[in-house]
């Protein structure tokens, strides 16, 4: 279960990436967050961020124009 849901709708590149990173910094290993974004660029940008910093993208769902990322802190 996600400890937090963060809705970044309306924000554009690079804000979803910067804000997601800020949140991940404060998590402990194994904690999960849900990040919502309607920025099309985030579809590739959030996985790129996670790939770089080593946290895990558990799931990416698309609901209409919304992207929902389930992210687990490594």
């Amino acid at each position: 279960m996600a400890v937090k849901t963060l809705d970044y709708s309306g924000l554009k590149c690079p804000m979803p990436v910067l804000k997601t990173k800020k949140e991940l910094k404060n998590l402990t290993s194994g904690q999960v967050i849900e990040v919502i974004s309607d920025d099309v660029g985030a579809k590739k940008d959030i996985p790129a961020l996670l790939n770089k910093i080593g946290d895990e993208l558990v799931e990416l769902k698309e609901e209409g124009s919304k992207l929902i990322f389930i992210i687990k802190k490594a």
Binding site: P14, V17, T20, K21, L49, K52, I53
Partner: peptide, 12 residues
């Protein structure tokens, strides 16, 4: 600004 701050988030 965009590349530097995003780099910071990505540990670059």
């Amino acid at each position: 600004m965009l590349l530097g701050t995003t780099g910071d988030a990505m540990d670059i």
